[in-house]
Write a protein that binds this DNA or RNA. Structure first.
Lengths: 238, 238
DNA sequence: TTGAGACTTGCGGGAACCCGCAACACATCT
DNA sequence: AGATGTGTTGCGGGTTCCCGCAAGTCTCAA
């Protein structure tokens, strides 16, 4: 059994390789790639169906890599291994995971035992496994007024790119006023107005981006990925 | 000689402790703290004058910790050890470092040899040492129109908090128009307008925050730290 | 069928933002 | 002294943003 490790931090990579050879004796070969692009290449050439994937990487992040990877071989089993439980990652993964492929999501802060368990469950047994910590966050966000709906999320992505209402409406096929309504509920859910001082009025748009970042709803990589998608959309629409 | 290690990632912490005891035989005791607040406490109680400090930490980040730490014992030698060469960190450190204390800044991606060299140079010899990679970035930003002046930077901090022009003017003691001029040059230097498509107009404020993040001029911790400072200012000015 | 609730859309207006134009202060260099 | 550059301030107006009000659609359930 061959396993591909995609991870740009050398310490974490070697720690992970130790855990791998320790927990899974059936592993015969460990291939190491340092970013998403390299990982895609390695997976294609090595015909690999078991991957451990870091999420934050320089050139091409884990979600994008997993996307092309699953497009080529949907049965590939992927264990995502990340520092953070950012909501943006969860959404991203949820959107691209094929119907019946095994995957998992575990935090780097997890104990060695839990990591080994996840490695076996996902890569060998083909189970779905999500770190408890992450599940808790997802639940918390699911609460009444906190969790963003999908349509709110895409408007947030456009907002943080700096698009103005009219263009968002055009891109998403909504009327101007509807976009503004979405923004309204965004401001509400992100807690834009509940600042410390009462009679303190803030710039809602900037504040929304700020809040989305500190609540880990999005992160800088989300920004960069959204930028790339915008560029594609722009080319298609002159 | 006692050394305090402030670092919340267990792998990095143990790697660092190995490097320490390997490179500096004169070290008799290594104390480990997992965030800024704990680090301050440990330094105070242990009367420690040599510290290796991570920058990104949950409760209280490395710069804030170093600040109180240097306030109590200005001769403390601090080696900052970080994943990123974000400009915000450089500015933060430059502002708080006492006149004649030793400090250093090294990246986690540095080779073990370079790390050991830095440990010896800063903690034992009391030299100033900045990673070449970081110096290069600083130089790059120093180029003609790219580098932000200090006054532009503070306006940027207010902007990203969501303050509106009038309030920024009040807080920084400038006229409204001056603030807007600062913003103008900010937009220019951050490359707010140079979007892919020509006739594409963006929301400047949001775009400025976006650009500042992806160019690593600021990061999420900068946001959180700025928020705390704003809160203090608000209390003082009702 | 009727009614409640959620979502969409248009209109209108006040506030904030962006910025060109112009005047003035201050420092530096020739 | 004069020129030049940089930074500060006011004014005016075009644009965008934010949102209350109101009317319309769609769904679900009583």
């Amino acid at each position: 059994m061959k396993v591909l490790v995609v991870e740009d931090d050398q310490f974490h990579a070697s720690y992970l390789q130790d855990a791998l050879s320790d927990a899974l004796p059936e592993v015969t070969e460990i291939i190491h790639a340092v970013d998403g692009a390299e990982g895609e290449l390695a997976a294609r050439q090595g015909e690999i169906s078991a991957v451990v994937m870091d999420l934050q990487m320089e050139r091409r992040n884990g979600i994008e890599a997993a996307c092309t990877l699953w497009a080529e071989r949907p049965e590939t089993r992927v264990l995502f291994w990340s520092n953070y439980a950012d909501d943006a990652y969860l959404r991203g993964i949820a959107q691209i995971v094929p119907d019946d492929s095994a995957y998992g999501y575990i935090l780097k802060t997890a104990s060695p035992d839990r990591l080994k368990l996840a490695l076996r469950a996902v890569l060998v047994e083909g189970q779905i496994m999500v770190d408890r910590e992450i599940h808790r966050r997802q639940k918390r966000n699911e609460s009444p007024r906190t969790r963003l709906s999908d349509s709110e999320f895409v408007v947030l992505l456009d907002l943080v790119l700096g698009l103005q209402d009219k263009l968002i409406a055009k891109r998403r096929g909504m009327s101007l006023r509807t976009v503004q309504n979405r923004l309204l509920s965004l401001y509400d859910k992100l807690g834009v107005d509940q600042s410390h001082d009462e009679n303190l009025i803030l710039n809602k748009r900037v504040r929304a981006l700020n809040r989305a970042l500190v609540t880990r709803t999005i992160n800088i990589e989300t920004l960069e990925a959204a930028e790339r998608e915008l560029e594609i959309w722009l080319r298609e629409n002159r």
